[in-house]
Design a protein around this nucleic acid. Structure first.
Lengths: 207, 207
DNA sequence: CCTACCGATCGGTAGG
DNA sequence: CCTACCGATCGGTAGG
């Protein structure tokens, strides 16, 4: 029997649940996640799992929040050292692509998958994703503005169009990794980003 | 009571079921589709619905097959009249974008959504999608080959890279339509396609 | 965080 | 294509 535990232990369990939910949700979708499956996987009871959140939707929101947190810490976070404008933006996209590629099991971008899953399902989960996406769009836009100001891009650059196209590359990388399991996905993504930002393409891809 | 009907009537019912499943599946995903909900929507019993397919997975496969059929009839189908190479390829992408945009309710590309949904779920549905995607990739590749041969594109064109980037645009259009409900999604997509295929961008997008 | 339970719904079957 | 049913599982609650 594992009765009520300390606050610290409870928080640790909550983290364990979210961690596992991120893995399971990546495979079966955030909606395909079930409390029962999660409980079995964690060696807990269903009540033990759901007790930390109240409802399944609250659990799902906690999982999305954690994914947003990780994305921000990793992608814009690791680009903070780079000079504002094209350099920082390139760094951010390189981090995103690396983040999607590096892990053998935890492939792709969780938020991108969830964004597709909820694109037609109104509700708080979709709202949270829309907010996170808007923040990302603002970030990319700000760096592109900086690039124009610094003379790295022409003054008549259509920035929203560029944001749209850069987003498309990220989606293409995600699909190439997850669906096609294409080992050259990351390289193709990096080359596309360079091309869009009008930098010369330095190397040729093998094969 | 509606007892056994003629072969023709049974086929019509089957078509009705698939039609409805395409609509419901676009919202809740192909996995979120339930026989009970489908039956209620159609004013039928669950047994009446599932009897046409045997299992839920067979129903799902029938729905995907129908979606593949429609995509092919519409996208490469409507581009058949265009001259091989860039003209035909541009026409095909314009058809795809129009197909994703035109319908007020039936927005986006069903196959693209399902492709994301099953990217991490091995099984026959994923296999069918991979096959359809491979055929589409072959189609785009063949037209690009034609364009190189005809001198519309440079001889050192990296065709797989171009296929990758064109696919990204389609994904960006899908996301802009479904998630952001951006009314300029189609225009942005068309402009991106033109840019990638190295055609001059004729008009400027309003706002 | 557990046991024990709830009503609802899941995919699917039997039999007509 | 229907009624009537099956076992399994769903999200969630009571109570400790």
């Amino acid at each position: 029997m594992s009765p009520r535990k300390s606050v610290v232990e409870a928080a640790a369990t909550r983290t364990r649940i979210i961690e596992r939910a991120l893995t399971l949700g990546a495979v079966n979708g955030l909606e395909g996640l079930t409390i029962g499956h999660l409980a079995t996987d964690l060696g807990m009871s269903k009540a033990g799992v759901i007790g930390h959140f109240g409802t399944k939707e609250a659990l799902q929101l906690a999982v999305v929040d954690e994914a947003v947190e990780r994305f921000r810490a990793r992608v814009p976070g690791h680009a903070l050292g780079a000079r504002p404008g094209l350099e920082r933006l390139s760094r951010a996209f390189e981090e995103w692509i690396a983040y999607m590629t590096e892990d053998e099991e935890h492939r792709g971008c969780f938020l991108t998958s969830v964004a597709m899953e909820y694109d037609e399902r109104p509700g708080p989960i979709r709202d949270v994703i829309l907010t996170a996406l808007a923040r990302w769009t603002d970030y990319v836009t700000a760096e592109l503005d900086e690039a124009v100001t610094a003379g790295e891009l022409p003054h008549d650059t259509d920035i929203p169009q560029l944001v749209f196209e850069l987003g498309g590359i990220a989606l293409a990388v995600q699909q190439a990794i997850l669906l096609n399991r294409d080992p050259s996905a990351a390289d193709r993504g990096r080359r596309a980003i360079r091309r869009i930002l009008n930098k010369p393409t330095p190397q040729v891809l093998g094969s």
